[in-house]
Simulated scan of single mutants.
Amino acid sequence: MDLQIAKWGNSLALRIPADYVRRLGIKEGDHVQADLTADGGISIRAAKWDRAAFVRELEKMHDTMPVTESVIEELRRGARY
Rank of each mutant, 00 (worst) to 15 (best):
E59A: 14
D50I: 05
A47V: 06
D30G: 01
G9A: 15
F54L: 13
L24W: 14
R45I: 12
A34V: 11
G29R: 01
R23K: 11
D50A: 00
D30F: 02
H31S: 13
L24I: 06
G29A: 00
I16Q: 04
I16N: 06
P66F: 09
R56Q: 08
D30C: 00
A18H: 14
D35R: 08
K27Y: 03
G41H: 05
L12D: 14
H62F: 09
K27F: 06
E28G: 00
A34N: 03
E69N: 07
A34R: 02
R76G: 14
K7D: 08
L14E: 12
A52W: 06
A13D: 10
T68I: 07
E59C: 09
V32R: 04
Y20N: 05
R22S: 14
T68D: 13
L75F: 14
A46L: 03
R56W: 04
L36P: 05
T68F: 15
D19T: 04
D63R: 08
R45K: 15
E73A: 14
W49H: 08
P17T: 03
A13M: 14
L75V: 05
V32A: 07
L75M: 13
L12N: 15
V71M: 14
V55R: 00
A46Y: 01
A6K: 14
R77A: 15
L24A: 10
K7Q: 10
K48A: 10
A53F: 03
L12M: 11
G41V: 05
A52T: 12
L12F: 13
S43W: 07
E69Q: 08
A47S: 03
P66V: 02
H31N: 11
E73S: 05
K48E: 13
T37K: 02
K48R: 08
A13W: 03
N10Y: 06
E74K: 01
T64R: 07
E69D: 14
R45Y: 04
L14S: 11
I16L: 15
I72V: 13
E57Q: 13
W8D: 12
T37M: 10
E59V: 12
R22H: 13
E73L: 11
K48F: 01
E59G: 02
I26S: 07
R77G: 10
I16Y: 04
K27T: 00
I5Y: 10
L36R: 10
T64S: 07
R56I: 02
M61W: 08
L58P: 01
R56A: 13
I44Y: 04
A53P: 00
V55I: 09
A13F: 01
R76C: 12
V21S: 08
S70Q: 15
V32P: 02
D19C: 06
A46M: 07
E73T: 00
L12C: 09
S43M: 10
K27I: 01
L12Y: 15
T68N: 09
Q33E: 11
R23E: 14
A52G: 04
G25F: 08
W49D: 05
